[in-house]
Nucleic acid binder design. Structure first.
Lengths: 198, 198
DNA sequence: ATAAAAAACTGACCAAGGTCAATTTTTGTG
DNA sequence: CACAAAAATTGACCTTGGTCAGTTTTTTAT
């Protein structure tokens, strides 16, 4: 028999998330200790792990929340510059820091694994697919491939670019970032544009 | 002053790697304990961490070794079927299990981070780029984009497909895998083929 | 050969993620 | 309301990745 979700459960979860946001804001994701979260939230450590499978899932939930809010205003692109702008916005959000990239790598792929993370990704793919479908109908881009397939491919390329931009090599961080963005641009053009042009 | 690398160092490292291979063969990567490796190798735990930054780097080194051997016979593809075959071979190696996918996600991106992993990936991208360059010269595929860029894009798509294939959702594993391969195929066609055809 | 410096190795120790039997709170039922 | 079952919570405890001051081995200089 299925029982209804207790209000207490949601309240506890919210307290943990709020505490997590505070801790992350204060000291970043990498150094977040579950102990610190639990102390702020006023719960026992066991409660934390009753709500989240492990520390990484908790961080993923926090990150999904942040990115969902950051991308809330994005609408399906209607032309080539709009498409590139949207990809750039996604890249900026994804490539924020090494922690973000690592969490995306772990939880972006498999739908259903990350709490909210998968929804955020799927939502972005949907908006991309919509825009691509519209642009195909108007002959602005090639229409030999399915919009959904192209959207998923673009998302994969954006995530790849974000990961590349976080290369820990001793090279200039900014230069690496510029290269990653340039590559993403070229890949997008090769994949989407039927003919040369902007 | 730079001193020469001691033979002892290499020997110890080899013992650790050999012990790691045995442990992985016996119980898999996910459940590998550094204690078990150290016991088999006959070293102290501190020695382990003097040779490898952490447990994950050690696993990445083991995986890189395995994949490098598995892909040793791959040569630059010379036609469309050859290209698809190579991508399929890479996919098979990458999508072996969830542990493999997780390690690839963590260490494939940033060159210089994973011991051997980055070399393996770069080597595959080089071979892809060579094949793509040849095929472009012979007019078998579109030549508007740089072979290196296309090769890196294809690698990103293969890694994405492998990650998708390891979806932990309760759906049929085989079905998920088939879908991932199909998507990869469509993406490759959209990215590489200038005109319709096989 | 001998001494000094650098590199490699050791294992006791620590930190923090994660577990679970026991306890408290809530919900559904007669 | 009373009672039983399920859900939520607790915190002592365990596991294991990772550290580091001290020791041993190797290299280099004189």
């Amino acid at each position: 028999m299925t029982r209804k979700v207790q209000a207490r459960t949601l309240a506890t979860r919210d307290r943990l998330m709020a505490a997590g946001r505070e801790v992350v804001a204060a000291e970043g994701m990498a150094s977040l200790r579950t102990e610190a979260v639990v102390l702020r939230a006023g719960t026992a450590k066991g409660t934390f792990f009753a709500h989240f499978a492990d520390r990484e899932h908790f961080l993923a939930a926090l990150l999904a929340e942040t990115l969902t809010a950051e991308f809330a205003g994005i609408t399906p692109p209607q032309d080539r510059p709009g498409l590139l702008a949207m990809l750039g916005q996604l890249f900026t959000g994804f490539a924020r820091d090494a922690d973000t990239v690592a969490l995306l790598a772990r939880f972006s792929g498999p739908p259903g694994a990350g709490l909210g993370m998968d929804l955020m990704i799927c939502g972005m793919i949907d908006r991309l697919a919509h825009g691509i479908g519209d642009m195909q109908a108007r002959g602005l881009i090639g229409n030999r491939a399915d919009p959904g397939v192209l959207a998923e491919a673009l998302m994969a390329l954006v995530l790849h670019a974000a990961a590349s931009a976080q290369c820990p090599a001793q090279g200039d961080r900014a230069a690496v970032r510029v290269r990653a963005v340039g590559l993403l641009h070229e890949m997008t053009v090769a994949l989407m544009w039927p003919t040369t042009g902007t």
